[in-house]
């Protein structure tokens, strides 16, 4: 296995595009190294992107923020601007692993690992984030929703790298939140994840909403019906009940060692409701 740590994006893309055999991008490595050690993957080339300066930055852009693909969870968590604008995305990213894992793990890695249970992804989907991708054919932007296509599968072409995640601007009186269910208090994989983002008008009525669920289908879900039942309400009990029902209805989970279909479906509703309440409180300021 060959290990490379190029200092420019062009060099990284070239290495990946020219690779014979299997090649992998290495960001924090908190998924990749585990997979390497267990023998689950045996790549011929690993390209470390942590030496590429432009991928290590968080920059303000059009009222939103562009987060480089090599920015760790800990670095993101210390960024006042992102915290203030998208607290739900930051809290979701900070849930990944432990203090040690936070020093390494990236949002882009969480996205590209393509686990349906990835914690930051529902929050990014609720935030309507886009991923910027650079490859042998140039640059393209795509919705984060379209990066993972199934467990462990992505839409990235040969030689393509996610270089940044863009979290857009949002109106005043907006808020987001992410909650996950794990049997323990940390160091666990989400059995269900739920993210909700809302914007309110001056009266406190919800005018825009996005609801996203993780770990309840082969891909992270965007639940349009969940958003629809919130819009036009002040998130009263009926609206929250309707949200819970919509969230549960959207689930198509599996029975596995982490939870049953019944459990995941039930808890998705509960968490969507609780996340919506927090997002609402944050939006009210």
């Amino acid at each position: 296995m060959q290990y490379e740590a190029p200092q420019t994006l062009d060099a990284a893309v070239a290495l990946l595009a020219d690779a014979r055999g299997a090649a992998r991008v290495l960001a924090g490595g908190t998924d990749l190294l585990v997979q390497l050690r267990s023998g689950a993957i045996e790549p011929d080339l690993v390209v470390d992107i942590k030496r590429i300066d432009e991928l290590k930055k968080i920059t303000a852009e059009d009222g939103g923020y562009r987060i480089g693909a090599a920015v760790s969870g800990a670095e993101l968590g210390e960024h006042e601007g992102v915290r203030a604008l998208w607290p739900g995305v930051v809290e979701a990213t900070e849930l990944i692993g432990s203090t040690q894992v936070q020093g390494r793990a990236t949002m882009a890695g969480n996205l590209c690992n393509a686990s349906p249970a990835a914690d930051s992804v529902p929050a990014m989907v609720a935030a309507d984030a886009t991923a910027r991708i650079v490859g042998p054919d140039g640059v393209r932007d795509t919705s984060v929703r379209d990066v993972a296509t199934g467990p462990g599968q992505t839409s990235l072409g040969r030689g393509e790298i996610v270089v940044s995640i863009f979290l857009p601007a949002r109106p005043a009186r907006s808020g987001d939140a992410y909650l996950r269910f794990i049997p323990r208090t940390e160091m666990d994989i989400a059995v269900v994840g739920a993210a909700v983002s809302v914007s309110l008008d001056d009266e406190g009525t919800c005018v825009a909403a996005r609801v996203s669920l993780g770990a309840v289908a082969a891909r992270v879900l965007l639940v349009d019906e969940g958003a629809r039942v919130l819009i036009g309400t002040k998130l009263d009990d009926d609206a929250l009940q309707a949200l819970a029902a919509a969230a549960s209805a959207a689930c198509s989970p599996i029975n596995d060692k982490r939870g049953t279909i019944e459990f995941r479906t039930d808890v998705a509703g509960v968490l969507a409701r609780r996340a919506a309440q927090t997002a609402f409180e944050r939006a009210k300021g």
């Binding site: 323990r184 208090t185 160091m187 596995d256």
Partner: peptide
């Protein structure tokens, strides 16, 4: 055996 590791064989962590 479906859970031969500490991720899915859940012993308590400190914060539990």
């Amino acid at each position: 055996l479906e859970n031969p590791g500490f991720l899915d064989y859940r012993i308590p962590v400190c914060s539990d």
